[in-house]
Amino acid sequence: MASTRFAPDRGLTVRMTVTMFLLGLLYVAFVALLIAMGVRAVTVLVIAGGFLLAQYFLSDKIALFAMHGREVSPQEAPELHGIIDRLSAMAGMPKPRVAIADSDLPNAFATGRNQKHSVVCVTTGILRRLDARELEGVLAHEMSHVAHRDVAVMTIASFLGVVAGLMTRFALYTGLGGRRNDNGPPVGLIIFAVSGLVYAVSFLLTRALSRYRELAADRAGALLTQQPSALASALVKISGDIGRIPTRDLREAQPFNAFFFAPALSGQSIASLLSTHPSLERRLDQLARISAALGR
């Protein structure tokens, strides 16, 4: 990772490292079990690897296309470019491409495999609702994702879930479900059960990793701007306004929650273990502690 001035967070880094280690351990155990059962998983791994590479190298294009975002020039969005220019200089990192998505959903996201191939996108909804200080806090959060290569981290972390899902389909579509091993239970049923368990565990670990990186981005962005209260104000304002967006629009945007600054759909109806983001209360509590430490 290229060096930037975004503050490191050793505690969160340790938790993310442990989560990645557990995912890797789960992956090794899963593949070893498949091999022990005599399953040729090469085809599945090749297909999953292809998905991984496509997601890794094309994440910026895929996200912009899905969110109907378009890159804008400094002439089209001078204030937005000005904020990102200033944050790039403060962080000591290359300026990402700048895009705007025509959506009333107040949100923002950053994607791209590294600092040289990154894009920061904001919606027209967030531009209408936030003042300059609040918008700067949100953009600092998003740019910390770029600096820490979070897209690459999450792409790699999601690989095991993709493999487990494909392995389940492989077992169903190739007739393994009826094949027995030494008069024991059908091999396909074992693969199906193990793949389902592996998918569930990897899903929970990946969601935990996503929540950790959001907390890390909040902290790094707040320390870079030295204005944690502005980021907290943006969080409160966005979370409140998202609640007034039509539910159908929120459900359409929900698949992109992992990219967003704030989840499109959240609340008590969704278990915290399944959420891509920490609760609003936890994020505000962290920002309050940072504000107290800075004396602001």
Results as ranks from 00 to 15, higher is better:
T4Q: 00
D9V: 13
T13M: 03
M16S: 14
T17V: 03
M20A: 15
F21N: 00
V28Y: 11
A29Y: 01
V31L: 15
L34M: 15
A36Y: 11
T43N: 05
V44W: 06
L45K: 04
G49F: 04
F51T: 00
L53D: 08
S59W: 12
L64A: 10
L64H: 06
A66H: 06
A66C: 10
M67K: 02
V72G: 02
P74L: 05
P78H: 01
P78A: 01
H81Q: 06
H81M: 09
R86L: 04
M90E: 02
G92V: 01
K95D: 05
A101N: 13
L105E: 07
A108E: 02
F109C: 05
F109P: 06
A110N: 02
Q115N: 12
Q115S: 14
V120I: 15
C121V: 15
G125R: 03
R133D: 15
E136G: 03
E136A: 06
A147C: 08
M154Q: 01
M154Y: 00
I156Q: 07
S158E: 03
L160M: 07
V162K: 09
M167N: 10
M167H: 01
T168M: 14
T168R: 14
T168H: 13
F170A: 10
L172A: 10
Y173E: 10
Y173C: 03
T174I: 13
G177A: 07
N181H: 07
D182R: 03
D182Y: 06
S195T: 05
G196N: 12
Y199L: 14
F203Q: 13
F203A: 14
T206H: 13
R213T: 04
R213E: 00
E214Y: 06
A216L: 04
A216T: 00
A217T: 09
D218M: 12
G221H: 10
A222L: 11
T225W: 13
P228Y: 12
S229W: 07
S233C: 04
A234D: 04
G240T: 06
G240D: 13
D241G: 08
I242S: 01
G243T: 02
R244I: 01
R251K: 14
A253N: 02
F259C: 08
F260D: 01
F261K: 06
A262S: 10
A264L: 14
S269V: 03
L274T: 00
L274A: 05
H277W: 10
A288Y: 09
I290A: 15
